[in-house]
C-alpha cells in the first residue's frame, strides 16, 4: 500500500487504524454514541454541556480527565501489584487481536496466513484475565461477577468459535487479505447468514451488552468485576469491554461484510470503519431496547438456540464449500 515514505502499512496499522488511535478514539466515540443513542430513543438530549457545537462529543473526554485526576485506591487486603496490573493487562490483551486483523490491503501489523483464527482465539482467551482481575480485587461483588462472566463465557465461546470456523471453512483460508478477496463477489453475510446472526448475538454476549449484561448487572452486583476500581484503573478495566467490542466489530467487518471492499488504501480504511458500524450501532442500541436476561435464560440461549444455529452454520458452510 502506498503511503508517504516514512509511513509503511504496518506502522499506519499500529499507530492509527486499527491500532492505538483507533482504539482510544473508539473509546471516546463509543461511550458518547451509546449515551446519545439511548437518550434519543428515550426522548432525551443526552450529553450536551461539554462542547455543545459537537453535540457533547467531548463529554467522555471530560469524564476521562475527571477519572484520571480522582484518587487511586489500592486496597491493603489485596495483592496490590496484581490489583494494579490486571486491568492494564486486560485492556491491552483485549486490544491484542487487532495485531492480526487487516483494515485495508497492507494495513496490518502482523500479516499471518492464520491471522483471523489467531485473533478469534485471542479474543476468547482474554476471559481468563477478566476472572483474574475479579479475583485479585478480593470482593464479593467481583467474585459473583467473575462467576457470571465464566458462565456467560461458557455460553458464547463455542458459538462464536463455530461461527468464525464456519466462515473459515467457507473461504478456505484465515488470512485477512484472502478472506476479503474471496468476498469480492458476495459478502460473507449473504454466503452464510446463519453464522452472521450467531456472530452478532455472540458479540453482544462477549461484550456483555444489554440483554446479556449479567456480569456487571448494576442492581445486583454493583459493577461486577469492575467494582473495586477507581481512577485510571477504572478506565482500563471498564474500557477493556469497549476495546473488545472494537476488536469483534473489526473482525466481523472483515469476516462478514467484505472488509475494505470495494475500495483500497485510505478509502478502504474508511469503508472498514463504516462497516464496523453495522456491529457497533446495534450493540449500542440494545441498551435502550432490552431488559436483562436471567443467568439461566442467557445460558439456555447460548447452549440451546445459539449452539444449534452455529452448528447449522458450520454444516451450511461445509455444504456450500462442497457445492462451490
Amino acid at each position: 500500500m502506498d503511503f508517504p515514505s516514512p509511513l509503511s502499512g504496518d506502522l499506519v496499522a499500529a499507530l492509527v487504524f486499527p491500532g492505538v488511535l483507533g482504539i482510544f478514539g473508539f473509546l471516546v466515540v463509543a461511550i458518547w454514541l451509546e449515551r446519545k443513542l439511548v437518550a434519543r430513543v428515550q426522548w432525551r438530549y443526552g450529553p450536551l454541556y461539554v462542547s455543545r457545537p459537537l453535540g457533547g462529543l467531548l463529554q467522555p473526554v471530560a469524564d476521562l480527565f475527571k477519572l484520571v485526576f480522582s484518587e487511586l485506591v489500592l486496597p491493603r487486603h489485596t495483592n496490590r501489584l496484581l490489583f494494579a496490573a490486571t486491568p492494564i493487562l486486560l485492556f491491552f490483551a483485549e486490544g491484542l487481536p487487532v495485531v492480526f486483523i487487516a483494515a485495508a490491503p497492507g494495513v496490518v501489523m502482523a500479516p499471518h496466513s492464520y491471522g483471523l483464527a489467531i485473533a478469534v482465539v485471542l479474543v476468547l482467551l482474554v476471559a481468563v484475565l477478566m476472572v483474574a482481575m475479579a479475583w485479585t480485587e478480593a470482593d464479593k461483588f467481583t467474585y459473583i461477577g467473575a462467576m457470571r462472566e465464566i458462565l456467560l463465557t461458557a455460553a458464547y465461546e463455542v458459538p462464536l468459535l463455530l461461527a468464525a470456523l464456519a466462515m473459515f471453512l467457507l473461504y478456505g483460508t484465515a488470512d485477512p487479505h484472502k478472506v476479503v478477496e474471496v468476498q469480492s463477489g458476495l459478502w460473507g453475510v449473504l454466503l452464510n447468514p446463519l453464522a452472521f446472526v450467531v456472530y452478532l448475538v455472540a458479540l453482544l454476549m462477549a461484550t456483555t451488552r444489554f440483554p446479556f449484561e449479567i456480569p456487571e448487572a448494576e442492581p445486583e452486583v454493583v459493577l461486577g468485576p469492575y467494582t473495586e476500581y477507581g481512577s485510571t484503573l477504572f478506565i482500563y478495566a471498564f474500557g477493556a469491554n469497549y476495546v473488545k467490542l472494537y476488536v469483534l466489530s473489526l473482525l466481523g467487518a472483515v469476516l462478514f461484510l467484505g472488509g475494505w471492499l470495494p475500495a483500497a488504501g485510505v478509502l478502504g480504511v474508511l469503508i472498514t470503519l463504516a462497516k464496523m458500524g453495522v456491529f457497533v450501532l446495534p450493540a449500542m442500541l440494545v441498551r435502550a431496547i432490552y431488559p436483562r436476561y436471567r443467568i439461566d435464560q442467557a445460558l439456555r440461549i447460548g447452549w440451546g438456540q445459539l449452539l444449534a444455529l452455529s452448528a447449522a452454520a458450520v454444516l451450511w458452510s461445509l455444504l456450500a464449500a462442497w457445492i462451490w
Partner: peptide, 19 residues
Amino acid sequence: KLFTTAVKQLFQPPLTVRW
C-alpha cells in the same frame, strides 16, 4: 419489531427541556 420501534423513537424530537 423491537429494533424498528427503537429506530423510530430515535428520530422523535426530545421531550426534555434544556433548562
